[in-house]
Computed example of a mutant assay.
Amino acid sequence: MAITKAAPQDGDTRPDAPAPAPAAAPAAPAPAEEPRRLTSPLALTLLLLLLVLLQSPIRRALSAPVMQSWTTVFVAVVIQALPFLVLGVLLSAAIAVYVPPSFFARALPSRPALAVPVAGMAGAVLPGCECASVPVAGALVRRGVTPAAALAFLLSAPAINPIVLTATAVAFPRNPEMVLARFVASLLVACAMGWLWQRVGRTDWMRPPAHAHHEGQTRGAAFWDSVRHDVTHAGGFLVVGAMAAATLKAVAPESWLRTAAGNPFVAVLALALLAVILSICSEADAFVAASLTQFSLTARLAFLVVGPMIDLKLFAMQAGTFGRGFALRFAPMTFALAIASAVLTGAVLL
């Protein structure tokens, strides 16, 4: 009888059993290449190289009379305004971080009709730029302060605080009445808007902020974070405003400026719209207004009253803090009242 050889079973370790094939080792993944990014040092290096390569054309362009006039106005506005801007940012950051919102709730009268002018006058004592006044007003509403009083403070703080009035006096040394006119016109707008909101405002028009400003940070970190944010944004808007003022002074045809300045209504409306578009910090806008010598003092007063109360950056901040519905109602009324107050105050004091 033939003897058949049994097939090897699983796990059979006999010498005649076929050895299993070794598993292939997984291939090591290729290192991913990091995308090249344009960092700040690289951008600065490229800019310096470009300036070195183009120094001859740049030198010829800057030697032109128009560019010399433009550079003179631009540098003068920036150098005059920058110290006031930095000081105002430091003080407004200190108030926003170290002064608790409960202080305002205790200091304001319980009656809204009286709380509005008191909150408006508080803006003359507590310096605050536009970037700080909006979150502070939001904190006041969140802590139970009547919205009418909080809005009065929001409008008055960046417009009539001591830093702004001092900067106005320095910018208009030959027209000291501009300081009083700016104070009176801005305070009138702040109180009028507060009383108007108390009369016709509805709670569903305003969406109170749901969280505190700088929540989760220490006071020191919140202070320097606020300073860095405000200096960066306000400094950028100051540069843009100084460039616009220098361009109007050096490039715009004199006949155009005379035509716009010759019509009182057009002059006021033009500078009011310019204030909205340029969005200059209130600590620096007086120097830009002072450089617009073609326009009347009343038109320049409209520029100074409108700018700290409603401009492009303020509209965005108000919409983000209180809701878009609030900003769409609040901004046009503030703009109209600011122009009317500036014209009325200018007719009496200027």
Rank of each mutant, 00 (worst) to 15 (best):
K5L: 14
Q9T: 12
Q9D: 05
T13D: 07
R14S: 14
P18E: 09
A23T: 12
A27D: 07
A27Q: 04
P31H: 11
R37H: 15
L38D: 02
S40M: 10
P41N: 06
T45F: 12
L46Y: 13
L50G: 14
Q55C: 11
P65K: 08
V66R: 12
M67T: 07
W70N: 08
W70S: 05
T72K: 11
T72S: 11
F74C: 03
I79H: 10
Q80Y: 03
L85Y: 02
L85I: 06
V86M: 14
L87K: 10
V99A: 09
S102T: 15
S110Y: 05
S110F: 01
A124Y: 08
A124V: 11
C129W: 01
V136K: 03
P147R: 07
A149Y: 07
N161D: 14
L165C: 11
A171I: 13
F172W: 08
R174G: 15
A181M: 07
A190D: 04
C191T: 03
A192N: 01
M193L: 15
M193E: 07
L196Y: 01
R199S: 09
T203C: 00
W205H: 11
H213D: 05
E215C: 05
R219Y: 02
A221D: 11
A222V: 10
H229N: 08
V231M: 13
V231R: 05
G236K: 00
G241T: 04
V251I: 13
W256K: 08
R258L: 00
G262R: 02
A267M: 02
L271M: 06
A272M: 09
L278A: 14
I280L: 09
E283I: 01
D285S: 14
F295D: 03
T298I: 14
V306M: 10
I310T: 14
K313E: 02
F315W: 05
F315K: 06
M317A: 15
F322V: 09
T334N: 13
A338W: 04
I339A: 02
A340D: 06
